[in-house]
């Protein structure tokens, strides 16, 4: 608990608080239970017979103040308030939250551990768990990857299709979530020049169409691109180098988009969620993301 600056301030708070309570008590006591003193001079009379203090103070007013007084005293005895006195319950805000976290751990910890260690197939069979997984996804992943996991803006990958830049095996997906990913594709414009970029763009399009064999840019592709994307263009999930032969294309299928990737490079980044999500949440997400897709 936060400590007060000194015993002086602790005393200051206690004296002012208790003093105020006594003041309020004295106020209602002398109004309701002590006879009023005699006036030295008579108060003015209005409207023929109306004088000050003719009616007693209302009773609801007495009960309101008296009730507040009693509640304040009980509160100050139970909870921290009077300077350094912590109250009979020894309650503190920090203590309260750690107690609640502990209770949460006792109540749900074993269950959550069970989920964190369960087979993915078992998790996928449980509709409620999958609904939880989807909620975790909505809270943490959807604003980039889209609420349908469809990817967004030609910048954030589609997680619902079969293509996985960093690998679609559960262990790979888990690694992506837990530690994040940083893609590093350098831009080649300065090194290769515009003409080569145009040719490589054409070659990449040809890879997608399956007509790359014998293409004039094949030599350059082998020299500069194949180390990451593979000689056959099938990519390398270890490096986050995407498959260039399939239909999926994060940054777009057009020649202009491909050209930009080659010329300027790409530095896609996935933040690490290992600190933000616990093992159970990550396990559920992995189960949900790698579930067998139903053919449409």
């Amino acid at each position: 608990m936060a400590e007060l600056p000194s015993t002086f301030w602790s005393g200051w708070i206690s004296v002012l608080t208790v003093g105020s309570l006594i003041g309020v008590f004295w106020l209602i006591y002398s109004i309701y239970f002590a006879a009023g003193g005699e006036e030295e001079e008579p108060s003015p009379v209005w409207d023929g017979n109306l004088r000050e203090g003719e009616h007693p103070a209302p009773l609801w007013w007495f009960w309101l103040i008296f009730g507040s007084l009693v509640i304040s005293v009980i509160y100050l005895m139970l909870y921290p308030g009077l300077g350094a006195f912590r109250g009979a319950l020894n309650w503190s805000q920090g203590g309260e939250i750690s107690q609640r976290l502990e209770r949460y751990q006792t109540e749900f910890g074993p269950l959550r551990r069970l989920v964190a260690e369960a087979q993915l197939d078992t998790l996928r069979e449980d509709a409620k768990l999958m609904a939880s997984a989807q909620r975790i996804y909505d809270r943490n992943c959807a604003v980039c990857h889209g609420y349908e996991a469809q990817g967004q803006a030609n910048l954030f990958p589609n997680l619902a299709d079969a293509a996985w830049q960093w690998g679609g095996e559960p262990a790979q997906v888990e690694h992506s979530i837990r530690h994040g990913r940083q893609a590093v594709m350098v831009g080649w414009e300065a090194a290769l020049g515009e003409q080569a970029i145009d040719q490589l763009t054409d070659y990449t399009l040809a890879l997608g169409n399956g007509t790359a064999a014998g293409h004039p840019a094949e030599g350059q592709y082998m020299q500069f691109c194949a180390a990451c994307h593979g000689a056959d263009g099938s990519g390398n999930p270890q490096l986050g180098a995407p498959n260039l032969t399939d239909d999926a294309s994060l940054y777009g299928q057009s020649a202009a988009a491909i050209r930009q990737s080659i010329a300027q490079g790409r530095n896609g980044e996935m933040p690490a969620f290992g600190e933000r999500l616990d093992d159970t949440q990550i396990r559920l997400l992995v189960a949900w993301l790698t579930r067998p897709t139903t053919p449409e």
């Binding site: 936060a2 400590e3 007060l4 600056p5 301030w9 200051w12 708070i13 002012l16 608080t17 105020s20």
Partner: peptide, 15 residues
């Protein structure tokens, strides 16, 4: 009184 009890000591509270 409210300010003297609640605000003043907090302003001077180190942490």
């Amino acid at each position: 009184i409210g300010g003297l009890v609640q605000v003043l000591p907090s302003v001077l509270q180190d942490d």
